[in-house]
Measured scan of single mutants.
Amino acid sequence: SSQSQGISSSSTSTMPNSSQSSHSSSGTLSSLETVSTQELYSIPEDQEPEDQEPEEPTPAPWARLWALQDGFANLECVNDNYWFGRDKSCEYCFDEPLLKRTDKYRTYSKKHFRIFREVGPKNSYIAYIEDHSGNGTFVNTELVGKGKRRPLNNNSEIALSLSRNKVFVFFDLTVDDQSVYPKALRDEYIMSKTLGSGACGEVKLAFERKTCKKVAIKIISKRKFAIGSAREADPALNVETEIEILKKLNHPCIIKIKNFFDAEDYYIVLELMEGGELFDKVVGNKRLKEATCKLYFYQMLLAVQYLHENGIIHRDLKPENVLLSSQEEDCLIKITDFGHSKILGETSLMRTLCGTPTYLAPEVLVSVGTAGYNRAVDCWSLGVILFICLSGYPPFSEHRTQVSLKDQITSGKYNFIPEVWAEVSEKALDLVKKLLVVDPKARFTTEEALRHPWLQDEDMKRKFQDLLSEENESTALPQVLAQPSTSRKRPREGEAEGAETTKRPAVCAAVL
């Protein structure tokens, strides 16, 4: 046999249950609850290399294929790409003598399909299967379609040439079993990697079954959420508030809700932002270029202005709740996480202390139980975000031990490091100062900020419009641009040419 590394010779191994799959997660993409704000000051410096380099560890398999027929071997997927077919160049070659004697062998292509993985959001991997055969590759009886790919989820059954000719079961060793999710959700989405997690739940990458488009699904544990919100009269209202707010909003710089499922837990389906959180971008770069800050901040102002015009105060604006559309420097941003939002009543007064301390406005800290506050709290938070983006460190921090965090904020005395700000323009610093004003009545509004000289930049605004146009074009394009080929190089076993392929839609398939 010419099988590559990772293939075992026996096809009769006992199949494990899916609970053996491991679970991976990374930083929070968007969480309903406010958790302790991640610290920006503690960015690790590059460490000196050791005298002796450690040995390379043996790579762990990321997936496993269990053979369902004699003549096929099990495969431990270690590499990122595997070709399957009769050709000797394939990493998994159909060359077992037992297999060659079967009637089905002649229906398999020289290069029938490939399984591979690509880097997705949060640097996690996504597994795909890609059909290159004349007679078809099927996943859970659905045709992939020649020249098309679809994501592979845990426990997928792979069939060759005929939908009933099941050859492998695919085990993704990095994700959960699909069966743990409600059927209504599974009918519409293929669940994938964990993108982030918080005290009350997690955010998962998923794929729409009909279109193969990526989405983010925010899962909120009702049990954990009820415990964490025990002081509230009705904890469920917080989730329902977020859903109702998101459904009503329609702005290019605000995250869109696509679906909602109320089962044992809450499942909020949101558009996916491939670039992750602004927080991670700031930490990764230490600070952002001023031109990049301007492009992002302009969009934040437009989003918050839209919220305020619609009578909504976000109340928890922070870099973790600003998501980026891509890994590119120039990209769209979207505001997310409306769990603490407040729809303005007639009095415009709110007395609930919520939000993240580092970003809270002075009037929030001094008015607990005594007075109210209004939309100006969001403008203060925007000032803190702009400060961080321009400088790479927070204006107020618990680690300045000589003054408490509350006193720093209520006095408006931010930590100004001259040598850092020497590289920032006077106009940018002036806008920061106009937003970090203790008196909410004297603080800049979103309208005033948008009129500030720093943002009178036609090149930046043109760039934003171009990015918007690109997004609109990409969302308007159909996901499947061509029909699967019906040509046949070899006959199917026991049926006429093209008899099955043309009847089945290529579900969740995307043209390369």
Rank of each mutant, 00 (worst) to 15 (best):
I243L: 10
K247W: 15
K248Y: 05
K248C: 07
C253F: 06
C253T: 05
C253H: 10
I254D: 00
I255S: 05
I255L: 03
K256G: 08
K258Q: 06
F261N: 11
A263W: 12
A263V: 08
D265M: 15
D265L: 07
D265Q: 13
Y267L: 10
Y267C: 07
I268G: 04
I268T: 12
I268C: 13
I268R: 02
L270S: 05
E271P: 13
E274S: 13
G275T: 07
G276Y: 05
L278D: 09
L278G: 01
F279A: 03
D280P: 05
V282D: 01
V282H: 04
V282W: 03
V283T: 10
G284R: 13
N285F: 10
K286M: 10
R287D: 14
R287L: 14
A291M: 07
A291T: 08
T292R: 13
C293K: 00
C293H: 06
Y296M: 15
F297K: 01
F297W: 14
L301V: 11
L302S: 08
A303Q: 01
H308I: 01
H308A: 13
N310L: 08
G311P: 05
I313F: 01
R315K: 00
R315D: 04
R315P: 03
K318L: 01
E320C: 05
N321S: 03
N321I: 04
N321G: 01
V322L: 07
L323W: 00
S325K: 10
S325C: 10
S325R: 08
S326M: 08
E328L: 05
D330A: 14
T336V: 02
F338Q: 02
F338S: 01
L344N: 15
G345S: 07
S348F: 15
M350K: 09
R351W: 09
T352W: 00
T352S: 14
L353P: 08
C354S: 02
C354V: 10
G355S: 01
G355F: 01
T356D: 00
T356K: 02
P357C: 12
P357F: 15
L360E: 07
L360Q: 07
A361N: 00
P362R: 00
E363L: 01
L365P: 05
S367Q: 02
V368D: 04
A371M: 08
A371I: 03
N374I: 04
N374R: 06
R375N: 12
V377P: 00
C379F: 06
C379T: 10
W380E: 00
S381G: 14
S391I: 01
E398Y: 02
E398V: 03
V403E: 14
L405S: 05
L405N: 12
Q408W: 14
I409S: 03
S411P: 07
K413C: 01
N415P: 15
I417W: 02
W421Y: 06
W421Q: 03
V424W: 15
E426Q: 14
E426R: 13
K427D: 05
L429F: 14
L431P: 02
K434H: 14
L435A: 15
V437I: 07
A442S: 11
R443C: 02
E448W: 08
A449N: 02
L455W: 01
L455P: 11
D457Y: 05
E458G: 11
D459R: 08
R462Y: 07
R462G: 07
D466Y: 11
L467G: 10
S469A: 14
S469G: 12
E471W: 06
E471R: 07
N472C: 12
T475K: 05
V480G: 06
L481G: 03
P484C: 08
S487V: 08
S487P: 04
P491S: 07
G494E: 12
G494N: 06
G498D: 12
E500K: 11
T501Y: 15
T502I: 12
A506D: 08
V507G: 09
V507I: 12
L512V: 06
